[in-house]
Nucleic acid binder design. Structure first.
Length: 487
RNA sequence: GGCGCUAUCGUCUAGGGGUUAGGACGUGAGAUUCUCAAUCUUAAAACACGGGUUCGAUUCCCGUUAGCGCUACCA
């Protein structure tokens, strides 16, 4: 019993009212990193008490997103919708001990009072008028069919304090808090009740969540105290903002994690990027000379992660930096590791490669250094994986608009077909000799050939490309250049 | 409005009473050649403002401003 209380227990508790979004993913990542760093337990809990907005599909999406980012969990997923009895019981306990009471004010009455308060310029706050209703009267009214909510009796005086692992000591005047609702009239708990009841029941040691909950925390601290429990460690994470420095939302573009997968981002890149958004390893990233480290493996992240390194200020999501991480990771992968990811892109694009596995791996190795995105392999790089690809119009226009050049390329094609030894050196030698023979600049033929062979104006070194494509394909595509129509 | 949090290059950040305020992304310039989105070199770019404390503040304190968050029978 003693030992279990010594290990950390951390949870990620998303509400399935949407896909796993960037902010949620980072909260999950930090929580997971912390759990793994401390060799603790990582628990997944689905906060689905808002029935209208929650859905099973969203749960699936959230789990997919977490798996995609390489996170696993030791317990759960638990569903709050299946634990309603615990919350009702907790609310009853609070009433019995005098910490909570039934409130019979209707939504309409509350609304009217709020409107009135707004008019007089006073702070709209529930006045606690139902505090004086006796337990007996309350029971009677319920028996008569009224459906009250349960409210927490917030002390009128004093203040509530707690220590935040990120922001330090916090103090809130109780007078600022209102008697918040614990149980709605339909018996479903509100967030404050369900989190505290669950975090207590699941013996959480650390509550890691977004800073949007910082102002809610005193209410929950009050709940812990009323329940006679000691506080977990709170660690609030600064928020992630869009480029306009407002909270990241749909109008900033993709906010769902899986949308980044669909955009051709590699999971390790996204994870690495996210880890350094609002957290820094500090001096640990410094290197003797040369730049600070920015690329960290999962193991390194786990080893280095600490609540101390969490920033206090919000961070803007930087797409360019993400793109850079993506290129770095794509570049560093072994082709065999990249292949399945690329195959997924091909499937999504309904494309079938027409070459052997060895040829494909060789092409990937050749293309990797200049790929920025997995999507490249299913678009501009298609000429390396089969004959089914489209020519980039601008490239054709720029390098193949001259009919003489096209004719020469075709002739060059038949010479390549006849070449006995097809190597990087021999192909270059042949082309340059041909250019001299025709009195044309080698560059013109090289640029034209590149377009004819790859459909793109940009590619790796031409003769390496030739070797990669193979003699037959090179000859064939060059010969076809003559028949190209440019316009 | 009230309460809370925050403030270092455009962005992510390191640092911290005395520093040429460091790195990364992005941007500019140059080099390289068969193309560039590759590579190399290089440049510009920041301590929000005002008061304290101090021999000395970007760093500590207070205020201002700005941004963000919370202020529901959402989470």
């Amino acid at each position: 019993m003693k030992s279990s209380s010594e290990t950390t227990r951390v949870r990620f508790a998303p509400s399935p009212t949407g896909f796993l979004h960037v902010g949620g993913a980072r909260t999950a990542l930090f929580s997971w990193l912390f759990a793994r760093h401390t060799e603790g337990t990582f628990i997944l809990r689905i906060e689905d008490t808002d029935f209208e907005r929650s859905s099973a599909d969203m749960v699936t999406g959230i789990l997919d997103g977490m798996r995609w980012l390489g996170m696993d969990w030791d317990e759960g997923p638990f569903y709050q919708s299946q634990r309603l009895e615990l919350y009702a019981r907790t609310a009853m306990q609070l009433i019995e001990n005098g910490y909570a009471y039934r409130c019979f004010c209707t939504r309409e009455e509350l609304e009217a009072r709020r409107a009135a308060a707004a008019e007089t310029g006073t702070v709209p706050r529930y006045d606690g008028r139902c505090r004086t209703i006796s337990r007996e009267d309350a029971e009677t009214r319920i028996a008569l069919g009224e459906r009250p909510v349960v409210r927490f009796k917030v002390p009128r005086e004093g203040s509530t304090t707690f220590q935040d692992a990120v922001f330090g000591p916090m103090e809130f005047a109780n007078a600022e808090l209102e008697d918040f609702v614990l149980l709605r009239s339909d018996g479903i708990p509100t967030y404050h009740l369900s989190v505290v009841a669950d975090d207590l029941d699941m013996r959480m040691t650390h509550i890691i969540r977004g800073a949007d909950h910082l102002s809610n925390t005193p209410k929950q601290v009050l709940l812990y105290q009323a329940l006679g429990a000691s506080l977990p460690v709170f660690a609030h994470l600064p928020l992630i903002l869009g480029p306009d420095k407002t909270r990241l939302s749909k109008r900033h573009g993709a906010t769902s994690v899986m949308a980044y997968k669909d955009m051709g981002i590699v999971p390790e890149a996204f994870r690495n990027f996210l880890a350094l958004l609002g957290w820094s390893p500090g001096e640990a990233a410094k290197q003797a000379d040369g730049p600070d480290r920015e690329i960290f493996s999962t193991d390194e992240l786990i080893q280095m992660f600490s609540l101390d390194g969490i920033a206090h200020s919000n961070a803007v999501f930087n797409n360019e930096k993400l793109a850079w991480y993506n290129t770095e990771y794509i570049r560093s992968y072994d082709p065999t590791r990249l292949l399945p990811l690329i195959e997924e892109e091909w499937r999504a694009a309904d494309y079938q490669p027409a070459r052997s596995r060895e040829e494909i791996l060789a092409a990937i190795a050749l293309l990797q250094p200049r790929a920025r995105n997995l999507k490249d392999f299913a678009s501009t790089f298609l000429a390396y994986f089969g004959d089914e690809f489209t020519m980039d119009e601008a490239a054709v226009k720029k390098f193949l608009s001259d009919a003489t050049v096209r004719q020469m390329l075709a002739e060059l094609g038949s010479r390549y077909a006849a070449l006995r030894e097809f190597t990087e050196a021999s192909t270059e030698e042949l082309l340059r000799a041909y250019a001299t023979e025709k009195g044309i600049k080698a560059g013109a033929l090289i640029n034209g050939a590149r377009v004819a062979l790859t459909g793109q104006a940009v590619a790796p070194s031409l003769f390496v490309v030739m070797l990669c494509l193979g003699q037959h394909t090179v000859a064939h595509r060059l010969e076809a250049a003559a028949a190209l129509t440019v316009g």
